[in-house]
Design a protein around this nucleic acid. Structure first.
Lengths: 157, 157
DNA sequence: TTCCGTGCAAATCTTTTGCACGGTC
DNA sequence: GACCGTGCAAAAGATTTGCACGGAA
């Protein structure tokens, strides 16, 4: 049986497990801070900033507190391993989210007024990107698409 | 006649003139630092960082030196007026470039190894974005697309 | 036991701000 | 003459780094 990577990733903690295994295979030791961060990211639907991650892990009920330095170090490590990707929103702080294969692949809508970040997907867009990627003078490894504007609350309110 | 795309857009400072006029109409006084910055941006084919702008204006032969604080203030002012847009490359510093109507609308290729930033255009991509923009829960005012990867020099070398 | 992951505090780096002067209107 | 644009220096804010300790292998 061949569980799709999405199913694999969406089942409780599977992405976190895969990520930890990948890092272990690359010679990293396991650690409590990283494990807590991985599990937090695994539960997110969209991108968080380093500060949001720190706060979430400091909140009551969180498995453990993780220092800000570790949050940045772990995110950097995960980014290099392509387990996490950064999302640039034009705001002061960079956002980070886990990378899943295919199914969870999405892009972002950013409200420039309130800072809200939402995910969206579009097959036509992905096709256009794929087509294009083979024509540019760059071996494309990733793409990032951000639509800026005003969210409903900001537009109406 | 073979006008380069750059000449086409900025036939001798047209964008700079338009930008200055727009700001003047909005009640801003003219100033030497801003004029120098506008003319520099008008000559660029792609995005520059604040530091690159400062350096370019400090170089021999530049019309005048502009302090870093002014570079940031002027860029911020131009961004609010939608005369300039920021380009997020995943690098430490944000890049900025002038906004032209239609013809020069482009997106960016970023080499994650050497930091090279190149422009590209793709009509199919723009169509996909336009179609999509009417379906998302955001009144879209801008979009930014960045392809990350390795440029030819970095891949081959 | 060895070495790496982590916390804390200090450092670094980009971007912003306070203040005073000079130019534009 | 009134005010805004600009330079300089200091401040602010995000991210990184140095160092020492405790846990993983």
């Amino acid at each position: 049986m061949n569980m799709s990577s999405q199913a694999a990733d969406s089942a409780a903690g599977q992405w976190a497990d895969r990520a930890e295994a990948t890092l272990a295979a690359a010679g990293h030791k396991r650690g409590g801070a990283r494990r807590a961060l991985l599990e937090l990211l695994d539960r997110q639907e969209c991108a968080l900033t380093a500060l949001e991650i720190e706060d979430a892990l400091a909140a009551r009920g969180a498995p453990r507190r993780v220092s800000r330095a570790s949050v940045y170090r772990i995110l950097d490590e995960l980014e290099r391993a392509r387990l996490v990707q950064r999302v640039e929103t034009g705001q002061a702080m960079v956002h980070y989210e886990r990378v899943c294969e295919q199914e969870h692949h999405h892009h972002h809508l950013v409200c420039d007024e309130c800072g809200l970040v939402m995910p969206f997907t579009d097959a036509g867009l992905e096709r256009a990107i794929d087509r294009l990627s083979s024509t540019v003078p760059l071996t494309v490894s990733e793409h990032e698409i951000v639509l800026h504007g005003a969210c409903r609350d900001c537009r109406d309110g």
